[in-house]
Protein backbone atom coordinates (compact mmCIF):
# COMPACT_ATOMS: atom_id res chain seq x y z
CA UNK A 1 0.00 0.00 0.00
CA UNK A 2 1.42 3.33 -0.97
CA UNK A 3 1.54 5.95 1.74
CA UNK A 4 -0.16 8.63 -0.33
CA UNK A 5 -3.22 6.48 -0.84
CA UNK A 6 -5.72 7.53 1.69
CA UNK A 7 -9.22 6.55 2.59
CA UNK A 8 -12.10 8.13 0.79
CA UNK A 9 -15.55 9.02 1.88
CA UNK A 10 -18.03 7.32 -0.37
CA UNK A 11 -21.77 7.58 -0.57
CA UNK A 12 -23.57 4.87 -2.47
CA UNK A 13 -27.01 5.77 -3.74
CA UNK A 14 -29.27 2.77 -3.63
CA UNK A 15 -32.75 2.26 -4.97
CA UNK A 16 -35.46 -0.32 -4.75
CA UNK A 17 -35.04 -2.70 -7.64
CA UNK A 18 -37.46 -4.87 -9.47
CA UNK A 19 -36.89 -8.45 -10.46
CA UNK A 20 -37.12 -8.66 -14.24
CA UNK A 21 -39.27 -11.78 -14.21
CA UNK A 22 -41.50 -11.58 -11.17
CA UNK A 23 -41.35 -7.84 -10.56
CA UNK A 24 -40.68 -8.38 -6.86
CA UNK A 25 -38.79 -5.72 -4.99
CA UNK A 26 -35.11 -6.51 -4.58
CA UNK A 27 -31.80 -4.73 -4.36
CA UNK A 28 -31.27 -3.18 -7.75
CA UNK A 29 -28.56 -4.97 -9.65
CA UNK A 30 -26.55 -1.92 -10.66
CA UNK A 31 -26.81 -0.24 -7.27
CA UNK A 32 -25.68 -3.45 -5.60
CA UNK A 33 -22.70 -3.52 -7.93
CA UNK A 34 -22.03 0.06 -6.91
CA UNK A 35 -22.02 -0.94 -3.26
CA UNK A 36 -19.76 -3.87 -4.08
CA UNK A 37 -17.35 -1.45 -5.71
CA UNK A 38 -17.44 0.75 -2.62
CA UNK A 39 -16.88 -2.21 -0.30
CA UNK A 40 -13.92 -3.28 -2.40
CA UNK A 41 -12.56 0.25 -2.14
CA UNK A 42 -13.00 0.24 1.61
CA UNK A 43 -11.13 -3.04 1.90
CA UNK A 44 -8.22 -1.64 -0.13
CA UNK A 45 -8.06 1.85 1.30
CA UNK A 46 -8.16 1.74 5.07
CA UNK A 47 -9.90 4.68 6.59
CA UNK A 48 -12.53 4.81 3.90
CA UNK A 49 -16.08 5.36 4.97
CA UNK A 50 -19.18 4.26 3.17
CA UNK A 51 -22.61 5.74 3.52
CA UNK A 52 -25.76 4.32 2.01
CA UNK A 53 -28.41 6.73 0.87
CA UNK A 54 -31.90 6.21 -0.45
CA UNK A 55 -34.74 8.60 -1.11
CA UNK A 56 -38.24 7.29 -1.38
CA UNK A 57 -41.24 6.11 0.51
CA UNK A 58 -40.78 3.91 3.56
CA UNK A 59 -42.86 0.83 3.00
CA UNK A 60 -42.50 -2.78 3.97
CA UNK A 61 -41.65 -3.93 0.47
CA UNK A 62 -39.04 -1.26 -0.10
CA UNK A 63 -37.58 -1.82 3.34
CA UNK A 64 -36.87 -5.47 2.66
CA UNK A 65 -35.23 -4.52 -0.62
CA UNK A 66 -33.10 -1.86 1.07
CA UNK A 67 -32.11 -4.30 3.76
CA UNK A 68 -30.81 -6.43 0.90
CA UNK A 69 -28.00 -3.90 0.50
CA UNK A 70 -27.28 -3.91 4.21
CA UNK A 71 -26.99 -7.69 4.07
CA UNK A 72 -23.89 -7.21 1.93
CA UNK A 73 -22.05 -5.43 4.70
CA UNK A 74 -21.27 -8.44 6.93
CA UNK A 75 -17.94 -7.88 8.61
CA UNK A 76 -17.46 -4.34 7.34
CA UNK A 77 -18.86 -2.30 10.18
CA UNK A 78 -21.37 -0.60 7.93
CA UNK A 79 -24.72 -1.16 9.54
CA UNK A 80 -27.05 1.65 8.66
CA UNK A 81 -28.70 3.30 5.73
CA UNK A 82 -29.93 6.86 5.51
CA UNK A 83 -33.44 6.95 4.21
CA UNK A 84 -34.79 10.28 3.01
CA UNK A 85 -38.42 9.56 3.46
CA UNK A 86 -40.64 10.92 0.75
CA UNK A 87 -44.15 10.46 -0.44
CA UNK A 88 -44.87 8.06 -3.26
CA UNK A 89 -44.27 9.65 -6.64
CA UNK A 90 -41.96 12.34 -5.32
CA UNK A 91 -38.88 13.41 -7.22
CA UNK A 92 -35.83 12.01 -5.48
CA UNK A 93 -33.28 14.28 -7.17
CA UNK A 94 -33.76 17.51 -5.17
CA UNK A 95 -33.80 15.64 -1.86
CA UNK A 96 -30.64 13.72 -2.70
CA UNK A 97 -28.87 16.78 -4.06
CA UNK A 98 -29.67 18.75 -0.94
CA UNK A 99 -28.52 15.95 1.32
CA UNK A 100 -25.26 15.48 -0.57
CA UNK A 101 -24.58 19.19 -0.71
CA UNK A 102 -25.01 19.49 3.06
CA UNK A 103 -22.26 16.98 3.80
CA UNK A 104 -20.39 16.38 0.56
CA UNK A 105 -18.54 13.06 0.30
CA UNK A 106 -15.60 12.63 -2.06
CA UNK A 107 -17.19 10.02 -4.24
CA UNK A 108 -20.82 9.26 -5.02
CA UNK A 109 -21.49 5.88 -6.59
CA UNK A 110 -24.80 5.13 -8.21
CA UNK A 111 -26.32 2.67 -10.61
CA UNK A 112 -26.82 3.87 -14.15
CA UNK A 113 -30.57 3.39 -14.24
CA UNK A 114 -33.32 2.62 -11.79
CA UNK A 115 -35.34 -0.55 -12.19
CA UNK A 116 -38.61 1.14 -11.29
CA UNK A 117 -40.40 4.32 -12.27
CA UNK A 118 -39.16 6.21 -15.29
CA UNK A 119 -35.72 4.62 -15.15
CA UNK A 120 -34.39 7.32 -17.43
CA UNK A 121 -30.90 7.18 -15.99
CA UNK A 122 -30.95 10.92 -15.45
CA UNK A 123 -30.35 10.92 -11.73
CA UNK A 124 -26.54 10.80 -11.73
CA UNK A 125 -26.43 13.53 -14.36
CA UNK A 126 -28.93 15.68 -12.52
CA UNK A 127 -26.91 15.35 -9.33
CA UNK A 128 -23.69 16.14 -11.16
CA UNK A 129 -25.34 19.20 -12.67
CA UNK A 130 -26.76 20.29 -9.30
CA UNK A 131 -23.52 19.81 -7.43
CA UNK A 132 -21.23 20.87 -10.27
CA UNK A 133 -19.17 17.68 -9.99
CA UNK A 134 -17.61 15.68 -12.78
CA UNK A 135 -19.35 12.49 -13.71
CA UNK A 136 -18.03 9.26 -15.16
CA UNK A 137 -20.42 6.62 -16.42
CA UNK A 138 -19.91 2.92 -17.06
CA UNK A 139 -17.39 2.53 -14.25
CA UNK A 140 -15.72 -0.86 -14.04
CA UNK A 141 -13.16 -0.33 -11.27
CA UNK A 142 -11.48 2.25 -9.11
CA UNK A 143 -7.75 1.71 -9.47
CA UNK A 144 -6.47 4.17 -6.92
CA UNK A 145 -7.23 7.38 -5.11
CA UNK A 146 -4.31 9.74 -4.59
CA UNK A 147 -4.25 13.35 -3.50
CA UNK A 148 -7.85 13.92 -4.37
CA UNK A 149 -7.54 12.39 -7.82
CA UNK A 150 -9.08 9.03 -8.60
CA UNK A 151 -7.86 6.75 -11.37
CA UNK A 152 -10.77 4.81 -12.77
CA UNK A 153 -11.42 2.19 -15.36
CA UNK A 154 -14.38 2.77 -17.60
CA UNK A 155 -16.02 -0.13 -19.38
CA UNK A 156 -16.19 -0.11 -23.17
CA UNK A 157 -18.10 -2.62 -25.24
CA UNK A 158 -16.67 -6.13 -25.71
CA UNK A 159 -15.02 -6.08 -22.32
CA UNK A 160 -12.59 -3.31 -23.22
CA UNK A 161 -11.51 -0.73 -20.64
CA UNK A 162 -10.47 2.91 -20.69
CA UNK A 163 -8.39 4.52 -17.96
CA UNK A 164 -9.57 7.89 -16.70
CA UNK A 165 -8.33 10.33 -14.10
CA UNK A 166 -10.97 12.32 -12.28
CA UNK A 167 -10.60 15.08 -9.77
CA UNK A 168 -12.67 14.41 -6.68
CA UNK A 169 -15.36 15.01 -5.57
CA UNK A 170 -17.05 13.17 -8.37
CA UNK A 171 -20.07 11.11 -9.22
CA UNK A 172 -19.61 7.76 -10.89
CA UNK A 173 -22.29 5.51 -12.25
CA UNK A 174 -21.94 1.77 -12.69
CA UNK A 175 -23.67 -0.66 -14.98
CA UNK A 176 -23.38 -4.35 -15.66
CA UNK A 177 -19.62 -4.15 -16.21
CA UNK A 178 -18.87 -3.40 -12.55
CA UNK A 179 -18.00 -6.32 -10.27
CA UNK A 180 -20.97 -8.52 -9.41
CA UNK A 181 -22.51 -7.86 -6.03
CA UNK A 182 -21.71 -10.21 -3.19
CA UNK A 183 -24.37 -12.26 -1.46
CA UNK A 184 -26.73 -10.48 0.87
CA UNK A 185 -26.83 -12.17 4.26
CA UNK A 186 -29.99 -12.37 6.28
CA UNK A 187 -28.50 -11.63 9.71
CA UNK A 188 -26.76 -8.31 9.05
CA UNK A 189 -29.70 -7.23 6.91
CA UNK A 190 -32.12 -7.86 9.75
CA UNK A 191 -30.02 -6.12 12.38
CA UNK A 192 -29.07 -3.04 10.38
CA UNK A 193 -30.77 0.25 10.98
CA UNK A 194 -32.70 2.43 8.59
CA UNK A 195 -32.25 6.00 9.70
CA UNK A 196 -35.32 7.60 8.25
CA UNK A 197 -35.58 11.37 7.95
CA UNK A 198 -38.68 12.83 6.39
CA UNK A 199 -37.85 15.38 3.72
CA UNK A 200 -39.96 17.77 1.77
CA UNK A 201 -41.34 16.09 -1.31
CA UNK A 202 -41.63 17.68 -4.69
CA UNK A 203 -44.10 15.59 -6.58
CA UNK A 204 -43.08 14.61 -10.07
CA UNK A 205 -46.26 15.80 -11.74
CA UNK A 206 -45.02 15.40 -15.27
CA UNK A 207 -44.27 11.72 -14.81
CA UNK A 208 -47.64 11.15 -13.22
CA UNK A 209 -49.29 12.51 -16.35
CA UNK A 210 -47.66 10.13 -18.77
CA UNK A 211 -49.45 6.90 -19.41
CA UNK A 212 -47.35 3.89 -18.54
CA UNK A 213 -48.05 0.35 -19.67
CA UNK A 214 -46.08 -2.86 -19.25
CA UNK A 215 -43.50 -3.02 -21.99
CA UNK A 216 -44.73 -4.42 -25.25
CA UNK A 217 -42.45 -6.75 -27.09
CA UNK A 218 -40.77 -4.75 -29.79
CA UNK A 219 -41.51 -5.96 -33.28
CA UNK A 220 -38.58 -7.64 -34.94
CA UNK A 221 -37.40 -5.75 -37.95
CA UNK A 222 -38.07 -7.59 -41.15
CA UNK A 223 -35.38 -7.79 -43.73
CA UNK A 224 -36.86 -5.72 -46.49
CA UNK A 225 -35.06 -6.30 -49.71
CA UNK A 226 -35.29 -3.29 -51.92
CA UNK A 227 -33.58 -4.81 -54.83
CA UNK A 228 -33.79 -3.73 -58.41
CA UNK A 229 -34.13 -7.25 -59.69
CA UNK A 230 -37.48 -8.92 -59.50
CA UNK A 231 -35.74 -12.19 -58.98
CA UNK A 232 -34.03 -10.99 -55.79
CA UNK A 233 -37.26 -9.59 -54.45
CA UNK A 234 -39.05 -12.81 -55.21
CA UNK A 235 -36.36 -14.84 -53.58
CA UNK A 236 -36.46 -12.66 -50.49
CA UNK A 237 -40.22 -12.95 -50.27
CA UNK A 238 -40.27 -16.68 -50.88
CA UNK A 239 -37.31 -17.47 -48.63
CA UNK A 240 -38.00 -19.88 -45.86
CA UNK A 241 -38.61 -18.20 -42.56
CA UNK A 242 -35.72 -18.41 -40.16
CA UNK A 243 -35.78 -21.09 -37.54
CA UNK A 244 -36.43 -24.74 -37.92
CA UNK A 245 -33.45 -26.95 -38.09
CA UNK A 246 -30.24 -25.47 -39.30
CA UNK A 247 -27.94 -26.37 -42.07
CA UNK A 248 -25.82 -29.47 -41.55
CA UNK A 249 -22.60 -29.92 -43.48
CA UNK A 250 -21.49 -33.49 -43.61
CA UNK A 251 -18.60 -34.98 -45.52
CA UNK A 252 -17.00 -31.69 -46.39
CA UNK A 253 -13.35 -30.82 -46.02
CA UNK A 254 -12.15 -28.81 -43.05
CA UNK A 255 -11.51 -25.86 -45.36
CA UNK A 256 -15.05 -25.84 -46.65
CA UNK A 257 -16.39 -26.19 -43.15
CA UNK A 258 -14.19 -23.34 -42.00
CA UNK A 259 -15.39 -21.30 -44.97
CA UNK A 260 -19.03 -21.83 -44.03
CA UNK A 261 -18.42 -20.95 -40.39
CA UNK A 262 -16.33 -17.97 -41.39
CA UNK A 263 -19.14 -16.71 -43.57
CA UNK A 264 -21.62 -16.93 -40.73
CA UNK A 265 -19.28 -15.23 -38.29
CA UNK A 266 -18.71 -12.42 -40.72
CA UNK A 267 -22.42 -12.02 -41.39
CA UNK A 268 -23.02 -11.74 -37.68
CA UNK A 269 -20.19 -9.25 -37.42
CA UNK A 270 -18.52 -10.88 -34.46
CA UNK A 271 -15.07 -11.18 -35.99
CA UNK A 272 -12.71 -8.42 -34.93
CA UNK A 273 -11.89 -6.12 -37.78
Amino acid sequence: MRPEEQGVEVVVLVSVGRHPITGRARRADQDARGLELALGLEARLPGSRIGLLHAGPHREESESALRGYLGMTAGTGLDSLTLLEQAEGADAIPALAEHLAAAPPQLVITGARAERGEGSGLLPYALAEHLGWPLVNGLAAVEKVENGVATLLQALPRGQRRRLKVRLPAIVSVDAAAPAARQSAFGPARRAELEATPVAAELDLELAEWPMVPARKRPKRLKIVKSASARDRFKAAAAKAEGGSGQVLEGVSSEQAAEAIFKLLREEGVLPR
Binding site: H19, I21, T22, R24, R26, G71, M72, A74, G75, R182, Q183, S184, A185, F186, G187, P188
Partner: peptide
Protein backbone atom coordinates in the same frame (compact mmCIF):
# COMPACT_ATOMS: atom_id res chain seq x y z
CA UNK B 1 -24.99 -18.15 4.80
CA UNK B 2 -27.16 -16.15 7.13
CA UNK B 3 -24.53 -14.11 8.94
CA UNK B 4 -21.57 -13.95 6.61
CA UNK B 5 -23.18 -14.26 3.20
CA UNK B 6 -20.44 -16.63 2.13
CA UNK B 7 -22.29 -19.39 0.33
CA UNK B 8 -19.84 -20.43 -2.38
CA UNK B 9 -19.97 -20.48 -6.16
CA UNK B 10 -23.41 -20.51 -7.75
CA UNK B 11 -25.26 -20.79 -4.47
CA UNK B 12 -25.94 -17.07 -3.92
CA UNK B 13 -27.49 -16.92 -7.36
CA UNK B 14 -29.67 -19.94 -6.60
CA UNK B 15 -30.77 -18.43 -3.30
CA UNK B 16 -31.55 -15.10 -4.95
CA UNK B 17 -33.60 -16.96 -7.53
CA UNK B 18 -35.49 -18.78 -4.80
CA UNK B 19 -36.27 -15.47 -3.13
CA UNK B 20 -37.28 -13.71 -6.32
CA UNK B 21 -38.89 -16.44 -8.40
CA UNK B 22 -39.65 -19.28 -5.93
Amino acid sequence: TLERGETPNKAPEVLDNLIATD
